[in-house]
Lab assay of single mutants.
Amino acid sequence: EINVTSHGEEQAKHWIELAKRMNLDVEVEIHGDKIIITIK
């Protein structure tokens, strides 16, 4: 399980695309200006 804290939408999209390509599950939480991505 990987937790990524992203401070930008572009960076977040990059991680989500990467996870989808690798067929991994992704959870995205938004806390103000921080985007927390959990890849399982």
Rank of each mutant, 00 (worst) to 15 (best):
E17A: 03
D33W: 08
E10F: 05
G8Q: 09
N3T: 10
I16H: 04
D25E: 11
L24T: 01
N23Q: 14
H7Y: 10
N23C: 14
E10S: 10
I35N: 00
H31P: 01
T5V: 07
I36M: 04
H14W: 09
L24V: 12
I16K: 03
V28S: 01
A12E: 13
E1Q: 11
I35E: 00
I37W: 00
R21K: 10
I39M: 01
I2Y: 02
I39F: 01
Q11N: 12
V28A: 01
H31Y: 08
L18N: 04
G32F: 11
I30V: 09
T5L: 03
S6M: 09
G8N: 10
I35Q: 01
H31A: 05
G8Y: 14
I37T: 00
H7N: 07
L18P: 05
E17T: 02
G8D: 14
E27D: 07
H14F: 14
K34H: 11
I39S: 01
E27V: 13
H7A: 11
E10W: 06
K40C: 14
I16P: 15
N23T: 09
W15D: 15
M22Y: 09
L18D: 05
K34D: 02
V26I: 12
I35P: 00
D25W: 14
H14M: 10
H14P: 02
K20G: 12
K13R: 07
K34V: 11
E29G: 03
A12D: 12
A12Y: 14
T38S: 03
H31S: 05
V26K: 00
E9D: 11
H14A: 07
I30K: 02
L24H: 02
V26W: 07
W15P: 14
I37G: 00
E17N: 01
H31D: 05
I30Y: 06
V4N: 05
I36A: 01
K20I: 15
T38Q: 03
T38G: 01
H31N: 09
I35L: 04
L18M: 05
I16F: 11
K13E: 12
E17S: 02
H7I: 13
D33K: 09
E29R: 07
A12W: 15
E17V: 04
E29S: 11
T5H: 07
L24Y: 05
D25P: 03
N3K: 14
V28Q: 00
I39P: 01
H7W: 14
I30A: 02
G8I: 15
V26D: 00
I35R: 00
S6W: 03
T5A: 07
V26L: 05
K34A: 06
L18V: 09
E29P: 00
I39R: 01
N23L: 15
H7D: 06
I36W: 03
Q11Y: 13
N23I: 15
I36Q: 02
Q11F: 14
L24P: 01
I39Y: 01
A12F: 13
V28R: 00
K20P: 13
D33H: 03
I39C: 06
H31W: 13
E27G: 05
L18C: 15
K34G: 03
D33S: 11
M22N: 02
T5Q: 08
R21V: 14
E1H: 12
G8M: 14
K20F: 15
D33Q: 05
K20A: 11
G32T: 06
K20V: 15
L18S: 02
S6R: 07
Q11S: 12
G32D: 11
D25V: 14
W15I: 15
V4H: 06
V4T: 06
E10Y: 03
T5G: 04
I35K: 00
H14K: 07
V28L: 05
I39G: 00
E10L: 06
E29L: 09
H7E: 11
G8K: 07
R21I: 15
E10T: 06
Q11K: 09
E1R: 09
E1A: 13
A19L: 15
E9Q: 08
N3V: 14
I16A: 04
A12C: 15
E10R: 03
G8A: 12
H7K: 07
V28M: 04
A19T: 08
S6T: 12
T38C: 13
I16W: 12
V4Y: 03
H14V: 08
